[in-house]
Design a protein around this nucleic acid. Sequence first.
DNA 1: AATATACTTAGTTCGCGGTTAAGATTTTGGGGGCGGA
Length: 511
Amino acid sequence: MQDRPLEKTLYKHFGYEQFREGQKEIIEELLNGNDVLGILPTGTGKSMCYQLPSLLLEGTVIVVSPLISLMVDQVKQLKQQGMKRVVAINSFLTPMQKQQVYDHINHYKLIYCSPEMLQNAQFMQTLKEKVSVSLFVVDEAHCISQWGHEFRTDYLKLDDTLKQLNNPTVLALSATAPVHVQNDIMRQINRPDMQKHIFPMDRENIAFTVEHVTGMEEKIERIASVLKTHPVPTMIYFSSRQWTEKAAYELTQATSGLRVAYYHGGMEQTDRLLIQQQFMNDQLDVICCTSAFGMGVNKSNIRLVIHAHIPSQVESFLQEVGRAGRDGEQSVSLTFYSPGDGEIPKRFIESELPSAELVSDAIQYLQNIAQNGRLLPLQPEEIEESLQISEVQWRFLAYQFEKNGVIKGRKVVHQANWGEAYHSIVAFIKERTNIKQNKLTELLNWVHSKDCLRASLYQSFQSSYKTPVGFCCDRCDFSFNLWETSETPDRMELLGWEKELQKVFLQGEYQ
DNA sequence: AATATACTTAGTTCGCGGTTAAGATTTTGGGGGCGGA
């Protein structure tokens, strides 16, 4: 091991004898100063790709993460492994805590933050003054492409952040990113020449099945009957919060004995955390959830992922399905479709971005402000109120107006080219809506596909896919009565005393 | 009739509970000296 310094560091700090597939190549690439786009399946240790370099590189590693809970989990885990010079900066810190972190910012080797945080002037100033960034990591990088254009536009400003931080080496990581998402990531962060380390993401132990039914009532009946014969750890996706709650109640009634809960973004943070932990600890069998549930759920024995509603694109579908069978055991994806099910995602797509009329209203509103020599209101809620638009719609517009030179921070640019801005924004909205509608159509086509579900699902994502280890799909060889699941395992899984002790010590620890 | 996804902010408090470091005290094991067999 003497002439293998990377392995030595790996063993010394993380206790592993050798690297997993892909890790070493990526790390060497980064240490040589090359940008890397890494697409690695979940559970193969993506975070090692930057945690180990953070120990070897001179400066600081910045990790952009989409969820506070993800950063907090990572920091907790690293501290537990003995790496103390790690911090997550987010809105959970009080102003005083934040100041303390800023005062000693150069003490940290790893800093986790959200893309929004990187738009905070004080944070950026602190970084620029006191920190030399050796590596800039975008975790869950598909968020750039999937959320950046409409939902969280700060994801599209990372290229500017990189410039301000003296163009450090970049590592973009994701588990599920088809070629067009990979290209979008590189385009948005303005690094066209990234070294690609891409591993196939098709899952050979998941069987696919689609059932056409009449409506939600029949779906829940079917789910109940499947769960009675196959009482396995299960996730059920819905497109509405209300249905998650209703279904959880009805399934509890229908399947005596199964422990069912619901989870969606409208719940209290503490409740969300509790449900997630109970599910991960096998204290719950079934979760009825919206798309809010998923990222950061590292439960290895999820056997069944049901879509009671379809999402709005294949990428989301694959991410959600991919949470099944991380342990390699036979798992199943069950998708329901009833006539009209495409309507919900269609409405989402239509309502997410403002209409042309709203863009024109917004321009009038801005011109009014400019003429009176005023600034934009400090509270965005005030603008949303005046224009009668949603928070997401205003954030999208604000980003577009800024990009088109109409506003600068809170200032409205007087001599802006309003006509051109209007046309370019409206054209962009059309283009995005189109792209999203096509993505929805792609998923709907799959649901109605007559051919092998596995083949048609993965075809557009990668050139080839592995042959399944068990069942393939309901067009080929799968049906529920062939699928044998072992008896519900003991509720209390024995982990060995080290893991049990670790669990006890880390319980309830959140910051 | 409507249906989902997340982040953000707060200026310089105060008291309480818990933790840690340092010092004091007690317990315990081992080493060394001494006397006797």
